[in-house]
Design a protein around this nucleic acid. Structure first.
Lengths: 132, 132
DNA sequence: CGGCATCCAATGTGATACTG
DNA sequence: CAGTATCACATTGGATGCCG
């Protein structure tokens, strides 16, 4: 499978969807991607498949409920695959799909931006809060 | 993926903050950036200053409350500036700061990704939902 | 015009307990 | 191990009304 499908090239040439429009499906998708945990899950899978418990450990502070919920949503959206290995105890691995890998660099960039600019942001907050 | 500046490469070489850590300030910043409206506001300001009412019209479906709340938060974080022109009626313009402009391409890319891949995502959803 | 304050319904989220 | 189920609680977000 080619990196970019014909459909993707077409979409890029002329964007038929506009996230600025309330009812546009892409708006809802953008809302989903803007979820608190999606970027962290995506980046956690950047190096290949990961077990559920690995991810829970990696993403400190995420509850079981939210991790499962986020992974289910991303699986449904075609961003990750879920592979169950029948054993005792059972083993479940998650992996990025081709689609998920196209999104990864974008979300990773945002995560990195946050890490690199947090000091500037904190300085701005101090300035803002010290006014009146 | 956007071009990297020298400053970004330098910061990447030594990241002091890690969004994977629960208590890390950058984690909270990432949460803030993952807000539903931040990306849309950011892109709405990509062409220069915009009046409050312009933005409300552009970002269909946003309530006054959420638009104001999002703009305040972004102003506090140093992403946008707020300029009040005393007149009757009053005029308020918002504009991206230098810091905000470094984040813009990243968020714009995510928004564009959503618009370009929504059809693939919807196809994946259909597949997922049709299973048992 | 560009807010802010208030109320209230809906949704999100964590803690806890339980299971194949 | 990798969930599911349930409850309690916090947060979100819209609607409304008022104001400089």
């Amino acid at each position: 499978m080619p990196t970019q499908t014909a459909a993707e090239r077409r979409a890029e040439a002329k964007v038929a969807y506009d996230a600025y429009i309330d009812k546009c499906p892409s708006r809802k998708l953008l809302d989903t991607l803007s979820d608190k945990w999606v970027s962290l899950v995506l980046v956690a899978l950047s190096d290949g498949p990961r077990r559920y418990s690995d991810m829970a450990r990696r993403i400190a502070g995420v509850s079981q409920k939210m991790l499962t919920q986020t992974l289910r949503s991303m699986e449904r959206d075609g961003l990750v695959t879920r592979t169950v290995t029948p054993a005792v105890p059972v083993r479940v691995d998650y992996e990025l799909t081709a689609l998920g890998r196209t999104l990864l660099p974008l979300m990773a960039a945002v995560k990195t931006w946050a890490e690199e600019h947090i000091e500037e942001v904190e300085a701005a907050r101090s300035r803002y809060d010290s006014l009146t």
